[in-house]
Simulated scan of single mutants.
Amino acid sequence: MRAASIRPRPDQIAELTRGLRLPLPEISSLHLNIIAEGLLQAFADIRAQAPVTVASGTEAEVTALLEARLNAMIEVEPLWGQLVLCVARRKESVSFDGSHLEKRPDLSIYLSNRNRSFPLITEAKIIDSAASKTESLYCDNGIRRFVEGEYAWGNREAFMIAYIRDGSSIGTKLTPFLSNAGSRSPPGYLVETLPVAKGSESYDLASSTHGRNFLYSSGLKDISEPGSISIWHLWLP
């Protein structure tokens, strides 16, 4: 988008949020764990069917496979089908003040019991230190987008997926990196809590909490601050 066209658009935000009070209510931890397990299952399936692409393909190639598999699961996995309406890759969305109308998060997960204008946003990144795809890039091009209101600004939670190609884990890479960032003043990525393990020990899942550095449009009655966002990290080896 050209610089001249980057400006707040309160009319866009007013229409998008008509009748809503933001941020939306929390998604339960039970449902977030089911979503994490669905993502894990879908990744295992595509890895079995397309091992070369998953092991060496681009982020877009792997995520496109994941999108297709997640949508296919709606028809064959009853619990997933009850919770998820559909999954869309690179679905255009609007930033918190309408300055950007064409933000494209990697995956938008539309849940059956949630407002359609605010899907559960999932960003995906490759972690491969040999290719200079590190936890720093993961945070700069992932977490930062949630903190600054580019993505998931009406929600209280989001997901990030890492496709691991160098043996990294949340405990060995992400947690120390965020700990160091959080020790600065102000904290980098507005870290409030470091990643805390979630779900089963058989997979690498944790959530961290981050402040957000934007305010809602003044057109949203009685609301000014979005509060913190919980980011669920699923690292897939």
Rank of each mutant, 00 (worst) to 15 (best):
N33M: 12
F43C: 06
V54W: 02
A44H: 14
A42G: 09
H31A: 12
Q41M: 11
A60H: 02
F43Y: 15
E26H: 14
L65P: 05
G81S: 08
S29H: 09
N33L: 15
L32R: 11
L66S: 03
W80P: 06
T53H: 01
L24R: 11
Q82G: 07
E61K: 11
I35T: 02
F43M: 10
I46G: 01
Q41S: 14
E61F: 04
L79R: 10
R47N: 08
G57M: 01
L39S: 00
L40E: 12
R69M: 10
A48H: 06
L30W: 01
L79F: 08
N71P: 01
D45Q: 12
L32Q: 08
S29I: 04
G38Q: 03
T17E: 10
A72W: 06
N71F: 07
E61R: 10
R47C: 02
A72G: 15
M73E: 07
E37W: 13
S56Q: 14
R69G: 03
A72L: 13
R21Q: 14
I34M: 13
G81P: 00
W80D: 05
W80I: 07
R21E: 11
L79S: 11
L32D: 03
W80F: 07
E77N: 14
L22Y: 08
L39P: 03
L39I: 12
P23M: 07
T53S: 11
L79P: 00
P78D: 05
S28K: 06
W80H: 07
A55C: 02
E37Y: 14
I46E: 03
L70K: 08
E59N: 09
Q49H: 13
E77P: 00
A48G: 09
Q49M: 14
E61V: 06
E37L: 14
Q41T: 15
L65K: 05
M73C: 07
L22T: 02
G57S: 00
R21A: 13
A72M: 13
Q82T: 07
Q49E: 15
P78W: 06
